[in-house]
Design a protein around this nucleic acid. Sequence first.
RNA 1: GGCGCUAUCGUCUAGGGGUCAGGACGGAUGGUUCUCAGCCAUCAGACCGGGGUUCGAAUCCCCGUAGCGCUACCA
Length: 456
Amino acid sequence: MAVRLCYILGADEAPSSRSKPDRGFQVDDKLIVRFAPSPTGFLHLGSARTALFNWLAARSRGGRFLLRIEDTDKVRSEERFLDEILEDLRWLGLDWDGEPIRQSARFDLYRAKAEELVARGRAYREGEAVLFRVEPGRTLAYDDLIHGRIAVETENIKDQVLIKSDGSPAYNFCCVVDDAEQGVTHILRGDDHISNTPKQILFYEAFGFPQPHFGHMPLILGPDGSKLSKRHGGVSVTEYKAEGFLPAALANYLILLGWTPPGEREILSLQETAEIFRIEDMSGVQAKFDVQKLKWMNGEYILKLPAAEYAARITAQLRSDGLDPDHVPAERLAQAAELYRVRIKTLREFGPLADFFFRDDFAVDEEGQAKHLGTAEGKAALALFADRLAGLDEWRHDTIEALCRELAQEKGLKPAALIHPARMAVSGKTKGAGLFEIMELLGRETVLRRMKEPLT
RNA sequence: GGCGCUAUCGUCUAGGGGUCAGGACGGAUGGUUCUCAGCCAUCAGACCGGGGUUCGAAUCCCCGUAGCGCUACCA
């Protein structure tokens, strides 16, 4: 296994063990990291993770987190993608320092820098393009923050395009020019950039720019071990947002893919994580994306939400799913949502489970319908229960429950014999929240109406 | 093909010469209960393979194998 290098902490700090991770007091305002998205698509989960780790690196050390828009590809870059990416970053809870710079506005600079290298004989023209000359016979080595020492022979590196024939700069080149100008000290990015690093080091050398530290984090894989892609399900932050995942849960899960907190706790806020995060504790191993665990974690975050925020999020989700919750009194909707809090893993799951709270044409479980209301016993029990309910004085879950149990005892039935047909009639479901709470919320009128319907 | 990264339960991982190889998700079983979920209890489940080094290897070294990445005038 590669040796982990700890010198990035600064010369005066010895590599400490993770048993004493209290570095909250340390401030290293020299540390500058960046996230450099390309607005050619939505924010991918892998990119989101990269952004998260860069943010953590900065916020854990009092450094700066910059944004750079890599929109050199004019054909594929779109403004709507950029807006979406920035919105998703904010949604995840990330903030950045200063205004993002845009590479599309800096082509003159890149061309000038390339000319500089041509003038010094380090690069040459080939048509309209400018290429950097790579001399063979050297070993280019650097100490990766995550993988340890990585070395490549220059024999294996071709001359590098600096400026393309159409006048636009090549990725590796403007990346170096910008990182140097922005003063980036630590470059944390995906493993797919490992082989770009030696090429970029060549440019740092050619310009005499101080070389930043590099750290390459493994890519996120799909459940089958191949690169995470569409066929595995959602790959963009937007999709998980729409599914009803909470930003804090998604961020927490993504961070756990490649970094483990000391101790037993896995549920950590971004702020808590920033206090104990260290770059060199990141794993160098590719991780598979496991929706199961994400869902579990999302459930945990749903449980912790303050009541008002939970209700607001559920309502917003219903609205965006076209379930039209606004004709139901907010208070009642909030109470219904509470009944399902412990039963849902994503916000989106609430709608289908609880549709009977806000519409009469709710989905009906056919199998359950046949089982509980398709028999003479079921109907008889339902009629009995409905009849008795009509005369109940106070319509509360505890009075309804008392009535139900008394009635069952009186008739020599199990309470379940009354409960199941009733649940079916009232909600169309065989599972869900407790029947008595459901009835209280629905109100006597609705409950009785729905209970009588199967009897006609 | 060349170059590079990686390898502990199904999944995320802890550990890093002597551990009953620990935790979490998921799974299974039992309990609670009107169902489901939850909660409680319990269980199953791993050091990629082969050689070394060593009294002793999951741990160090070498060789394989596998997965992934790069090998663009994409980023």
